[in-house]
Nucleic acid binder design. Structure first.
Lengths: 334, 334
DNA sequence: TTGTAAGCGTTATCAG
DNA sequence: CTGATAACGCTTACAA
């Protein structure tokens, strides 16, 4: 039955005994259509198994009903970090209640800027951007041509940008405060990339609490949010001498890498070195020791970003900034 | 400069002093166009920063220049298994050399069959399907409405299907043979899902080698290709009594889960129980012990699948079956 | 080699 | 509430 050449609106109209326009109205929400017509059209649509042609619709309405998710990372990191899985899940959840579809752009996979021109050429109604670095200039170009919502405070802190972020500064604070309250005094940190707002903000929270407590911060090394990066940073911290008795590590993946190094050196966690991670991603609990960590609601973040974008597309005026709260989860490592 | 309303072909034509058709021809490859016209058009395109409107193009040409990747799994597994990362990387690599874009459908996220109707409605030129289970009936519907290429031998083994697979039977054989040659005699296996060709085939290779060696297979438990599933299967194997001295585990992720259980029980790998995994995914080497495993070229598989699909779309006649070879990588666990 | 003109399937405008 | 009719931007015979 389902032929390759699907039914057209014309056929539906004929079948229902109405005009194209009426069918189109039904498609658009069924407003301003008589009950009988509506019924007839719905019936015809069902019988013919009709699905509107997206290209035609988009050409006429000047809307694509597609939104892009732009990730300025390489595929390895995109798939390697559960953070993205959570974000995508949230986006999908909200999108499945709309009639928009998702186009995925793992930007670094695309040397020729194909993604950028695709987006600026109006092939999507809007874009969601996560994990952006200050050095990602193409993001700015995208931001100028289609509505975008950032996951994370916008790179340059522009007033008119839209973003959904978690309270990273406070997250850094509660992690560090926990360590201080446990009596640790030589507290180091493995920070996120300092060209990313999340990296900067978590570090800031860390520093604030230490300053308030009158403690000098231990070594500060930055990783790249990967397990390997965390391991390397841990080695540098250890090499700096005067071993810390606790660490705030700005992501669970990095914390895993760091713990691996500690264990190699025969150091016990948390007895010799306590660790607080960040994310509460699956790796926090997938193997022992279970990470004490700061939970950030990434799935909600994805959903909220999509909500804001959809609102903008609908012509509404959502808040420019949405901040989600974090929470300390005390488990085995601190 | 880059206004929201981008330049149209009409404007390019005017600028270049030619007709729409000529511009269109240049877009289509520049054949049958005089050198001067070609030059003029290219110039105009560059000046105007023109990018063709995809909706219009697709409406007129009845091609979408989009291909779908359909994954009948949930987001968690999609992001949790590095296999998919490799597949997507391969697909992207091939696609970036074409003018097609990728639409991602993580099918189980979409309860209302939105994905299926999207695809059957002709919104993509073709589809790539990986990780399909025999129970996934919607795959059949998709297969009937657009050209598809399967990653993995097609579910029902239909002659006219197109697929790119690795030689899973042989993979199972070389893994098991290695164990036999090392002198192990009580060899069990944690198989993949038996409703998936990859699961079935690897198990078959395992059984063949054992039969040839005159050995009785130890317990056969199936996991679901996840670390947790592997752990659960390992517990069942152990509970079955008569502890095996070696295991062939049909995926690295499951092997990790299994090793975790073994370690909990104070069993040493490979001394007490040897393990051969399958995939050579990043988790094989990300932490000790480094897995002895069967490497499957997943990135190449993604690339080859795309190649075949693109060939079909171009009207060529690529081979129905493409088989990629596997290879044993001997490391720490067997 | 080039231009003309007829669609492609929808939506949007505007009378009725 | 409904139906013509004109776009939307591009490809593609067909003619020149």
């Amino acid at each position: 039955m389902e032929r390759a050449g699907a039914a057209t609106i014309e056929e539906v109209a004929a079948r229902a005994g109405v005009s194209r326009s009426t069918v189109s109205r039904v498609l658009g929400g069924g407003d301003r259509v008589s009950p009988q017509a509506l019924e007839a059209v719905r019936h015809a649509i069902a019988e013919l198994n009709y699905v509107p042609n997206r290209a035609a619709r988009s050409l006429a309405s000047r809307q694509t009903h597609a939104v892009a998710l732009v990730v300025p990372e390489d595929t390895t990191r995109f798939f390697g970090d559960p953070f993205f899985a959570a974000i995508v899940t949230g986006i999908n959840a909200r999108l499945s209640r709309s009639d928009h579809v998702l186009n995925l752009f793992i930007a670094s996979d695309d040397p020729g800027d194909k993604a950028t021109s695709y987006l600026t050429a109006g092939n999507v109604d809007g874009a969601l951007v996560v994990s952006h670095h200050t050095s990602d200039t193409f993001v700015e170009r995208i931001n100028q041509s289609v509505p975008v919502v950032f996951g994370g405070r916008s790179p340059r802190g522009r007033e008119d940008d839209y973003y959904v972020d978690v309270d990273n500064v406070e997250g850094g604070r509660i992690a560090t405060r926990h360590l201080v309250e446990r009596g640790h005094r030589r507290i180091a940190t493995i920070a996120g990339p300092l060209d990313m707002p999340a990296g900067v903000d978590r570090l800031r929270g860390f520093r604030e609490v230490l300053a308030d407590a009158g403690l000098a911060p231990g070594p500060v090394e930055d990783g790249d949010f990967t397990a390997d990066g965390g391991a390397a940073a841990m080695r540098r911290v250890l090499a700096a001498g005067d071993r810390p008795d606790a660490l705030f590590v700005a992501s669970d993946l990095m914390a895993r890498g760091a713990i691996g190094v500690l264990q190699e050196r025969g150091l016990r966690v948390p007895d010799d070195v306590a660790i607080v991670g960040f994310d509460d991603s699956p790796v926090a609990t997938s193997l022992p020791p279970r990470l004490t960590t700061v939970r950030q609601p990434s799935r909600d973040q994805g959903e909220a970003m999509t909500e804001v974008l959809l609102a903008r597309l609908a012509g509404l005026d959502p808040p420019h900034a949405t901040i989600l709260q974090t929470e300390l989860l005390i488990r085995d490592t601190a």
